[in-house]
């Protein structure tokens, strides 16, 4: 490539600086979780593991974590079904309004979260309340599933594009019916795409706060909502900081899984 030496150096420097900007704030949170000073003045005053113990024993944190896991699992399950169905329809068929379907699936993440939030809030209250169903975990799951469909859809779509219909046609030629072909040929081939899409969907749901604010009732507190509620309370600051630090450490897990998944996908 015809890039001068200074240009290459500048680009490399930009990359290093950019990564620095990305990681320094996260590092500060990690460091502060061991900061003995309650106000987190920089530089840290001393070392303590007291806050980690306090966070571990906090009932509020535990409840919120469990709520988040339930919401994430529920939303992911729905997104897996809807996203896969939509991906098959869009990839395997040509029909009027196909582009509109794609647009419709992107819409919940393309529109600002607050719009989806108040639209769903309004709809839930008008439609569900007459039946005695209030806002709660169920409405959170419905709200999250709405914007999680796109991650599964995109992953499955990419996989379907790559694998083509050859293996399925061969299966049909050998006499397998539609369901058998799906169970024994199609599904195994797209399993890792489903896992990757599901993982993304779960992470998206686990992290969401805006739609959650509008779809959760008074009693339902996901982890992001708990953090936000306690963010401005000075006496809770150390625990909030530990939860933040723990979430940063935990964010490595999905990355590791995703890498393992893409690894298995490429060996097939």
């Amino acid at each position: 490539m015809n890039l001068s030496r200074p240009a290459r150096l500048a680009l490399r420097l930009a990359l290093v600086l950019g990564l620095g900007v990305i990681y320094v704030p996260l590092g500060v949170v990690l460091l502060n979780s061991f900061n003995s000073d309650r106000t987190f003045a920089w530089p840290p005053a001393g070392f303590t593991t007291r806050w980690w113990g306090a966070a571990w024993n906090s009932a509020g944190v535990r409840d919120a974590l469990w709520t988040s896991v339930q919401a994430g699992l529920g939303a992911t399950a729905i997104a897996l079904v809807l996203g896969t169905m939509a991906a098959f329809a869009v990839q395997r068929y040509r029909f009027f309004g196909r582009d509109t379907v794609s647009l419709l699936i992107v819409l919940p993440i393309a529109l600002p979260g607050i719009v989806t939030g108040i639209a769903l809030n309004n709809a839930f209250r008008t439609i569900l309340e007459p039946f005695g169903v209030g806002l709660g975990l169920f409405t959170v799951i419905v709200g999250h599933a709405t914007f999680c469909v796109v991650t599964v859809h995109n992953n499955v779509l990419a996989r379907l594009r790559r694998m083509g219909a050859g293996a399925e046609e061969a299966s049909a030629d050998l006499g397998a019916d539609t369901f058998t072909t799906f169970r024994l040929v199609t599904f195994p081939m797209m399993r890792s795409a489903l896992l990757a899409g599901g993982l993304l969907a779960f992470a998206l749901s686990f992290d969401e706060i805006i739609v959650t604010t509008f779809t959760a009732g008074a009693g339902v507190r996901t982890l992001p909502i708990w953090i936000f509620e306690n963010l401005f309370r000075p006496n809770q600051a150390p625990v909030v900081n530990v939860v933040a630090a723990a979430l940063i450490v935990l964010s490595v897990v999905p990355i590791y899984l995703a890498q393992r998944l893409s690894g298995t996908a490429s060996t097939h």
Partner: peptide
């Protein structure tokens, strides 16, 4: 990619602290 998985709130909080 890794910071994308770190929570939105955590990152906003990190900047609040900084």
């Amino acid at each position: 990619l890794t910071p994308l998985w770190a929570s939105y709130l955590v990152k906003a909080y990190a900047w609040r602290v900084m």
